[in-house]
Design a protein around this nucleic acid. Structure first.
Lengths: 330, 330
DNA sequence: ATCATTTTCGCAAACGTTTGCGGCATCCGT
DNA sequence: ACGGATGCCGCAAACGTTTGCGAAAATGAT
């Protein structure tokens, strides 16, 4: 490794002290304009770049942010990451990206990596088994803010940003009700997720209250593959006239079976989904959906972090509203 | 920020020196088993975790790896990232993820972030305008290996890993030829990419050589939207009996137009693509494709990096073979 | 008991930066 | 000319770690 230019190398070339160089480069008022100019010019010439490790060590701060998600193969998380990376870069932060694989042990390992690298803040979508969030609260007590997103814990005393899960499910339910469909196959994700619970409760609750005659068949699946088999089974057995999918992965599976069985959409069966926005448009007709944008959530999460840095440290739960996107599937 | 436990805090509690604690924790033979035990037990009790910044500063090494991609909204890159993150974690490295937005300036900014954070190695898919790779070569000269992947420069004196672009295009061409189709709409990406050039040359070259009677209409598009409009135009104008798409984004656009025009696949028109593997299966019939797996490439790239760390520093170009996946679209 | 060897540990410097403090010049007002 | 204020800069410590070297203590050989 060839040595890069440091404050010291600049200082010795100019026969001034390291501290003067340091202050000159940050426009400290103690330094005369003449030396400032000298230093800054030489620094530019020598391509001086500060050593982040030295700064972190000395100041006990860093420009690193941590992100932990269950899996990046999930569209929602990659679009969250896309937005988060962009915002981070614009504000001078650098992102450390980690996957937990929905495994609590790996999640803790990743958390440790975050601590070791002394990140300035953490964004995390917790894995389903994670009940105990003490280690995260401890981070926050140590001055490292933790923003939970999407898959958030139930606890009150923490910062969360999430989609309007209840609202999204209700919007979908309303659309189905208006279409006069009477027998709905409702496909949800892993029952352990609070996000699933919220959506299920809102969706089924809506019909109980506003259209009790409507039959809602709730099915919980935890993979695209399972969505395929369950949809096929239910379509044959109950012949529903509407299908609701709470995520892109589930939608992909459900549509596979619907096409295989050659069931006409929307004539024979209406389809509506909650989605991140890309997948529904691949089908013909395009699937009507309620959008939960990972990018929007990413921006919001980053803003929350910045506000935390600026002193707003009391716990909040922020919610991104949903957006109805009309396709031709209902 | 509450202070974490350090070598010093451990040493003062045990009334021994910092250096002894340091050595005890790494099983240095100079330290007696008795003190080793004492130190390690206390360290475990106090949840000691080394400070990565201090280590990096002192040893001039780091466990950070950099990744720069044009955009994470591209499926291929997210699957590359998925694999790379996994491998990195397993080997004790932490990943810094950056997007360039296909912009040379941002790319250089990101490179600077990598230097400032003193990464141990860099993976990069360069943006199309990047002609001059001096800044990357300089990194390598400074001891930081650079692995170019997917979008690789033409230069010889650098390390590259990429998909078998020529082979993939030829595999697709062979399948089309066997299907006896005679007029092919071939959709390629941005003409600036070396990857596009390679695929175009191989694909058209194959027909010139093996089936000169076949008409190949090559069209270059640089977005899904453009793929939609161009496909519609070409389908109407030339009525091809086969469509070749060199990427997932293009496939999504092409299929949109084909469905809109209600053209039967595969009867009226055959479709074949080069793809990362998820999108083709969403259609009905499933699209036949040649797989270029981002995850495979990610694993290979990481391996190359490790080998570099172990002394294999001479430039290499590694290539992942393609895989033919049969659908029902041809 | 003596000396040589080995075991076990501590000292101190170094990595690159920031920052409180103190010191020397220079300047101003009287 | 004198005192005080001000401008400009350097010293040195500190962040947490690693590591060459030397020194003390323990062990072994004779």
């Amino acid at each position: 490794m060839s040595q890069s230019t440091t404050l010291k190398s600049i200082s010795s070339l100019l026969n001034i002290s390291v501290s003067t160089v340091s202050r000159a480069l940050k426009n400290h008022p103690d330094i005369s304009d003449k030396t400032k100019k000298k230093v800054q010019e030489l620094a530019a010439m020598m391509d001086y770049e500060p050593n982040a490790h030295a700064i972190s060590l000395r100041t006990n701060t860093s420009k690193l942010l941590g992100l932990i998600v269950p899996a990046l193969s999930n569209f929602f998380y990659t679009s969250f990451l896309t937005a988060l990376e962009e915002e981070s870069r614009k504000h001078g932060y650098t992102l450390i990206t980690l996957q937990s694989g929905d495994n609590t042990n790996i999640e803790q390992e990743n958390l440790k990596l975050c601590r070791i690298n002394h990140i300035a803040g953490l964004f995390i979508a917790i894995s389903p088994e994670t009940k105990n969030i003490d280690s995260f609260l401890r981070m926050e007590k140590n001055g490292v803010p933790v923003i939970f997103f999407d898959k958030v814990p139930d606890a009150e005393n923490c910062n969360k940003v999430r989609m309007a899960d209840e609202e999204a499910a209700i919007m979908a339910a309303e659309v189905i009700q208006k279409s006069k469909r009477k027998k709905i196959l409702a496909l949800f994700g892993n029952q352990e997720f609070s996000i699933t619970k919220k959506r299920w409760k809102s969706f089924t609750g809506y019909f109980e209250k506003n259209a009790p005659a409507t039959e809602v068949i709730s099915v919980f699946v935890s993979s695209t593959q399972e969505a395929i088999t369950e949809t096929e089974k239910e379509m044959k057995q109950h012949e529903p006239d509407a299908v609701f999918c709470m995520s892109d992965e589930i939608l992909a599976g459900a549509m596979k079976s619907i096409k295989k069985l050659k069931i006409n959409v929307p004539k024979k069966v209406a389809v509506i989904a909650i989605s991140n926005g890309f997948i529904p448009q691949l089908f013909d007709p395009e699937i009507t959906y309620v959008e939960t944008s990972g990018m929007e959530l990413g921006k919001l999460a980053f803003n929350r972090m910045i506000n935390y840095f600026n002193g707003q440290t009391t716990s909040q739960e922020l919610i991104v509203p949903s957006k109805y996107v009309k396709g031709g599937s209902i």
